[in-house]
Design a protein around this nucleic acid. Structure first.
Length: 347
DNA sequence: AAACCGGGGGA
DNA sequence: TCCCCAGGTTT
């Protein structure tokens, strides 16, 4: 099976059927490609476009991002999930400003040394923005190669991963690397899809090993997963006038650095906290619980509503707490389920 | 209900 | 080096 034939068929297909007008494809600077790659790690093109436009409008350059408030970065990331990626994005921007004059460094290793950028993302940045020859191995490419070369075993396995990287390297052409890189990602996203791949339309179908054996649905081998445990938390929905009391979450872990509702393991803990911090507030009134499914556990959020008198609360806005106006929200990060909860009509 | 995802970080 | 973690959408 010729690696050269693979690349040339792919490039021909990219000319006719590839995607060339995505928001990050105009003016492909390393910075713009970087932001798009991080967003696309967790969201498909359709969802990412709106987030990308708002993010780039607010932070047009590495320097703008590096100088930003983390709260505002997380605000523009809210709803995308994986907030550690937004934090890494900003940390890396600060490093670029402080140590690299706001430019991306010259070598793959230096790019990979930035937080949140691994081998695949570094390769994509340098290939797409500078046309340098580096392989990538994102989810799309992994699927295309696993099928084309009928690579057995699930990609989490180290030996399988090595094999896929080697194939990715061998297939990457010596010219038109940018088009090839975009093309193989497009092929995975539009033709060689996870379920129901459109093999009849595929430019490399004659030599695709999985296709020849009609086993394309078996690749890549999915990894098994255990049942999700159930977790629950009580949250205090303290209202004062039009505002709701939010607490900043710890910097790491679930929704790290975002603003959520004060959270407690039991109703008793919540009640105790209210007695201490919300002096003079009304009785706690349970509201309808909210279910949120993470990939590794189910989360049941049980709200306790409380109304605070105008002058009573001891809590003021500071680094940890803030009274959040739902009608005129501050530019801070709020996790999606919490935002949903805050939007509920008040009874 | 389950799969997916690139990289970070702890064991 | 292995294994778990993160969070939302798609299927």
């Amino acid at each position: 099976m010729s690696r050269e034939a693979f690349a040339s068929a792919l490039l021909r297909w990219y000319e006719s059927d590839g995607r060339r007008n995505l928001p990050w494809q105009t003016d492909r600077t390393p910075y713009r490609v970087w932001v798009s790659e991080i967003m696309l790690q967790q969201t498909q093109v359709g969802m990412a476009a709106g987030y990308y436009a708002r993010f780039i409008a607010r932070f047009p350059t590495v320097r703008d991002l590096g100088a930003a408030q983390l709260d505002e970065v997380l605000h523009l990331w809210s709803g995308l999930g994986y907030y550690a990626r937004a934090r890494n994005l900003q940390r890396a921007a600060q490093i670029l400003v402080q140590h690299h004059r706001g430019e991306f460094p010259a070598t793959l290793d230096e790019v990979m040394a930035l937080p949140g950028i691994g081998r695949s993302t570094a390769g994509a940045i340098l290939a797409l923005s500078r046309g340098e020859r580096h392989p990538i191995l994102d989810g799309n490419v992994r699927r295309v190669l696993a099928r084309y070369f009928a690579v057995d075993g699930f990609p989490g396995d180290a030996a399988v991963e090595r094999r896929l990287w080697a194939l990715a390297e061998e297939c990457t052409p010596h010219s038109r690397v940018d088009e090839y890189t975009q093309g193989i990602m497009d092929l995975g996203a539009t033709i060689c899809t996870r379920t129901n791949p459109a093999c009849l339309l595929c430019p490399v179908n004659p030599a695709c090993e999985a296709r020849r054996n009609d086993t394309q649905r078996l690749y890549p081998t999915p990894k098994s997963r255990k049942a999700r445990p159930q977790r629950e938390a009580w949250v205090v929905l303290a209202r004062r006038g039009n505002k709701v009391l939010l607490e900043r979450r710890p910097p790491s872990g679930i929704w790290g650095g975002l603003w959520g509702l004060p959270e407690f393991p039991t109703r008793q803990h919540a009640a105790q906290w209210c007695r201490e911090h919300l002096v003079g507030s009304s009785a706690l009134r349970p509201e309808e619980p909210l279910e949120h499914a993470f990939s590794h556990f189910d989360y049941e959020i049980k709200p306790l509503a409380v109304r605070c008198a105008g002058k009573a609360p001891a809590l003021r806005d500071d680094d940890r707490y803030r009274w959040y106006d739902v009608e005129a929200p501050a530019a801070v990060g709020v996790p999606k389920p919490i935002a949903t909860l805050l939007q509920r009509p008040q009874r």
